Computed example of a mutant assay.
Amino acid sequence: MQFSDTHIAPPGGLAYGRVDTAAHLEKAVAAVDRLSHAPLAVLVTGDLANHGDDEAYRHLRALLAPLRCPVYLMPGNHDDRAALRRAFPEHAYLQSNNSTDADGFIQYDIGFPGLRLLTLDTVIPHASHGSLCAKRIGWLADRLAEAPQTPTIVALHHPPFRAFLDYMDGIGLREGSDALADVVSRHPQVCRILCGHLHRSVQTHWAGTLVQTAPSTAHQVWLDFSSGGAKGFGMDPPGFLVHAWVDGEPLVSHLMFNERFEGPYPFRGE
């Protein structure tokens, strides 16, 4: 399961003075509970808080608490690593003495039945765009070399490809995409690259694999392909991605919406 770009504010706050991101996340969490199968885990691919403050992360913690599965958090450009760690001290994978490097990057390795998850930290403090330095790329290369036969998901906040959303592309992954492509193309076990940041469900073939971004659980970037476009957001139906697999079979992803709709109805009719 993949949530992204939750942009939680302190209780009572609105993102951009307009969006009740907490109410939307509550609906997303409720939608997970309606699924026919309980998830093994929920991955949240960045921009967890709207401004990276302690109160917002405490609010996020409370909103995610009803999920009855492990939750794995990743930082995005709106996040603050130190505040995130303070709010979730029992999440060992976030702590710098566990699975992050000496610079404090939040990168970790999680094993699921028949599948592996490796996360990359693309954050540059106080910047909107992302970067992958040699240390972060080297960590990924070393982890991939450990298990070349295990199907692997690589997750990062900033997508490494051009989405033709001009403003968002300008604050995408500015450094390190070529080095990332080189590592990924040499490791065919990478079956998917999962990202956030774009606030839309977007897919493309890149470096020999599929790259996929999740929608926001709240507001979506406005679909505008014009020069200088995609500077704003709209209230398209919010949602998240459901990733499903059986050991030995390909990963399959579904787009799920927060809202509860009518149905199911039988296909047979009068």
Rank of each mutant, 00 (worst) to 15 (best):
L144D: 01
G138T: 07
L156P: 05
T152Q: 04
H158W: 04
L156R: 00
H157M: 07
D142K: 03
L156W: 00
A147Y: 12
R136F: 10
R136V: 04
Q149L: 15
R136C: 05
Q149S: 15
L156I: 04
G130Q: 06
E146P: 08
S128R: 13
H129R: 12
A147K: 14
P125L: 06
A155S: 08
A127Q: 13
G130M: 12
P159M: 10
P160W: 09
A134T: 15
P148E: 03
A141N: 03
I153Y: 01
E146L: 15
A147Q: 13
G138Y: 02
P160Q: 06
L132C: 07
A127L: 15
H157T: 07
P151T: 09
R143K: 12
H129M: 12
P125D: 14
H126Y: 15
T152V: 07
L132F: 13
C133R: 11
T150F: 09
V154A: 02
V154N: 00
R136W: 06
A127P: 09
K135F: 14
P160G: 05
Q149T: 11
A145G: 09
I137G: 02
P160C: 11
C133H: 12
R143G: 01
P160A: 11
R136N: 08
A127M: 12
P159E: 03
L144I: 02
P125V: 09
W139C: 09
I153C: 00
P159C: 10
L132G: 08
I137H: 01
H129I: 14
P125Y: 11
H129W: 13
I153F: 00
S131Q: 12
A145H: 08
H129V: 10
L140R: 01
L144S: 00
P125M: 08
A134W: 07
R136M: 12
P148S: 05
W139K: 10
L132P: 06
P160T: 06
I153K: 01
A141I: 03
G138H: 08
T150W: 10
A155P: 08
S131P: 09
S128Q: 15
L156E: 03
H157G: 04
A147I: 11
T152L: 07
V154E: 01
A127W: 11
I137Q: 00
W139H: 13
W139N: 06
P160M: 05
I137F: 02
S128H: 13
D142A: 10
P159R: 05
G138M: 01
H158E: 10
P151R: 04
H157Q: 04
P148W: 05
S131I: 10
